[in-house]
């Protein structure tokens, strides 16, 4: 089981490096983060045993992702909506 996860992670790394050589515009970063998230999810579920953990632990992990999302989204709603008043982004 662990060896299978390891193999998927190794293949995922190779795909990430390969995907970066293809020009996809804005989707390069989307694809890179998607692969990283798939890899990260596998690490958390299997290597970190979340799949076999208690509900309390699962809620803790989901809460951390949720709070991280708040950090990113509220910060970015500020920065990306400033473009009309400053030169940010150009």
């Amino acid at each position: 089981m662990y060896v299978l996860i390891w193999a998927i992670l190794m293949v995922g790394t190779a795909i990430t490096v390969f995907a970066a050589t293809i020009e996809l515009g804005v989707f390069n970063i989307v694809l890179a983060l998607l692969i990283a998230t798939v890899k990260g999810t596998l690490v958390v579920l299997f290597f970190m045993h979340l799949r076999y953990s208690t509900k309390l632990t699962m809620v803790t992990v989901i809460a951390s992702i949720f709070w991280l999302f708040i950090l990113f989204s509220l910060t970015m709603t500020d920065y990306i909506t400033r473009a009309w008043s400053t030169n940010i982004g150009h």
Partner: peptide, 9 residues
């Protein structure tokens, strides 16, 4: 790794 090393093709 992808964020720092693989920004552009």
């Amino acid at each position: 790794f992808p964020l720092l090393y693989l920004i552009s093709k």
